[in-house]
Nucleic acid binder design. Sequence first.
DNA 1: ATCTTTTTTGTTATCGGTAACACATCGAAT
DNA 2: ATTCGATGTGTTACCGATAACAAAAAAGAT
Lengths: 317, 317
Amino acid sequence: MVTLNDVAKKANVSKMTVSRVINHPEQVTDELKELVYEAMSELNYRPNAAAIALAHNRTQIIKLLILEEMTVTEPYYMFLLTGIANELDKYSYSLQLLTHKNIQIGDSDGYIVCGMRSKDEELVKSLKKPVVLFGENDFGLDFVDSDNVKSMAKATEYALEKDYDHIVYLGIDVNEPFAQSREKGYTETMDKYGKEKHIYRLENRSRYSAAFIRDHWDSFSKNTLFLCASDRLAMGVIREIKERGGNIPEEYGVIGHDGVFLDQIAYPQLTTVKQAIDEMGAACARMVLDKVKAGGKSQGNQLFETDIKIGGTTRNN
Amino acid sequence: MVTLNDVAKKANVSKMTVSRVINHPEQVTDELKELVYEAMSELNYRPNAAAIALAHNRTQIIKLLILEEMTVTEPYYMFLLTGIANELDKYSYSLQLLTHKNIQIGDSDGYIVCGMRSKDEELVKSLKKPVVLFGENDFGLDFVDSDNVKSMAKATEYALEKDYDHIVYLGIDVNEPFAQSREKGYTETMDKYGKEKHIYRLENRSRYSAAFIRDHWDSFSKNTLFLCASDRLAMGVIREIKERGGNIPEEYGVIGHDGVFLDQIAYPQLTTVKQAIDEMGAACARMVLDKVKAGGKSQGNQLFETDIKIGGTTRNN
DNA sequence: ATCTTTTTTGTTATCGGTAACACATCGAAT
DNA sequence: ATTCGATGTGTTACCGATAACAAAAAAGAT
C-alpha cells in the first residue's frame, strides 16, 4: 500500500506538504505541487479511508435508509445505489445499506433516506447526523427529486400533441408530496388548455389498475390516453386494454412514469417519463457530503428534469 | 464517542486489557473480564471501525462487483445487496459497489462478484484479495448459488404432477454453468419419467420468448407447460399465449424461475421458483469474511435450495 | 526460603492520516 | 538596517485500536 510517506519521500518533501497538496492546495507553491502530483500519480497513491476517518473523528460512512418495502417499488434502487456509491467513492466514503427491517443505526457521518412517508417523520428527525432525502417532502428536509410537476406537465403536453381527446390521470393513492406534484402537473396543464380533467387514484399495483380499466371500460370513449403516475400502473392498464380488445396506441394511449425497468418489459414498449436516477443518486451523495462539511447546515433542494421516452403505447403522428 | 480508554478508566484497568477482553478473552481473568463487560455495557461502548482497520492494515471494506448489465437482469440485486450489507454490518464492515462501468479497484479486504461470465475470468483472477462469487462457475472459484439442478428438477416434477402432457423447456442462450445446471435439472427429470424433452434456448428477453411462441404456436398441442429458465422469459410466454387466445392455466401452463419481482407483475401471477436471495447474500458475506480471516484459503461452495411459489399460471388440481 | 516458570497485566510503538504549532524565508514599512 | 506581517514548509502530537515486548504477580520446583 502506498502511503503519504512514500509520496513524500519520492517528492522530497514532508508528508504534511503532501497532505496539504490534497486538502489545501492553495497553501503550497506551484513548484512543489507539481512535484507532489507527479509522485502521486507515479505511485498511484490512494488515500487510506480509515486513517482519514480516524484523524477527523469521522467514519467515512454514509448510510442509506430504504424505508419502503422493496418488492412494492420499481426496482430503480439499484441505479440510485450505484449513483450514490460511485460518487461517495470519489471522496473515500463508503455506503452502508439499511432497510426498514434492519435499522441498526450505528455510526455514520450522514444519511440518505429513500421512500420516506409521513409516518417516518419521527424516525428521520431523530437521526443525529446530516440527512438528505431522495424524494420531495413537506418536513423542511433537504432533498433531491425529479421535478414532478414539470415532469407530468410535459407528459400531458405530449399526450395533447398526439391528439388524444381525453386524458385520464391515474395517480398513486398516497397522500405524499410526490404524488400531489405529479397530479398538479397534470391539472395545471389541462387547465391551461381548457381540457376536462379525469383523476383517479389507485394503489400502486398493476392488478388494481387493470381492475380499474375493467370496471370503467364502458366509460372510456376511444381516443383516450391514460397518463399513469408509475410504470407499474401503466402495465396493468396495457394488459387490460389488450384483454378488452382495445387497440394501442390508435384507440388508446398509455404513458407511464419512471422509465427504469418495467417500461422495457411492457409490450408494446411503454412511452414513459424517464428519470435520471443515477445522476440524482450522485446528487444525493454530494449534497450529504456538503452538508457534513458544512456542519449540518441545510443545503436546500435539487430538482432534476425528466425526459419523455417514446415507446409504442402512444401514437406516432 | 466512547473509546477503549473510557472503558478502561471506568473499569480501572489499562486499555490493553479491555482490548484483550474483546479479542482474546481467554487471556484475562474472570474477575477483570466481569468488570470490563460491565463498564462496556454501562457506557454502551461500540468499537471504532476506522481504528480497527488502521491497526490491522485492513480497510473493513468488501467490494461488490456487478459485472452484468443491470437493466438486462431481474432486479434481484437489491435483495442480494441488503443480505450482504446486513451481514457485513455485524462485523463492522462496509460494502462498496462497483459496476462494469466503474471498476475503480481501490482498496478492500475482499470481493463478492456477481454476474460473472467466462469473458470476465481474467479480471476476476487478477483480483489480489479474497474473492467469492455469487453464481456457479467452472473456474474453481468459491461460490454461493441456488442449487440450480435440483431447482429445475423440482419444477419439472411439479409440472408433471399437474398432468401437463408436454413440458417444453425454454433456457437462456448463454454457455454458462447456471444455465446448463438448470437445463440438466429438466433433462434428468424428464429422462427419469421417460418423457420426451423439448429444449429451446433464447436470449433472456421477454420479446424473444414471445416471438418464439408466436413462431411455433402451431406445434404446441394443448396441455403443454412452458418451463422457463427466468421469469423474464416467462413474461413473454404468458403475453403471447394470451395474445393467441390460449387459456392459462388450463390449456397451457407456465413456470418461471427467480421469484423476485416480475412474478408479481405477471397476470395471472406466475408460478415460479423462488430463490432465497437475501440469505444467499448473507452467505456470500460470511464466506468472504471467513476467507479474509483464513488468509485467502478456499472456502468451497454453498448451494441453497429453492421453493416453488404457486401462482395462477399452473393448474390447481 | 529461593529460584524458575508460567500467567496476567501494563507500556510503548505503530497503523496513515491531519491540526496546531514552530520555524524559516521573503518583501514591505518604518 | 530593523521590525513586521505574510507566506510557505516542517515538527510534533494525536485520532482509537492492536501487536510486541516488558514487567509484575502467582504458581511450582528445589
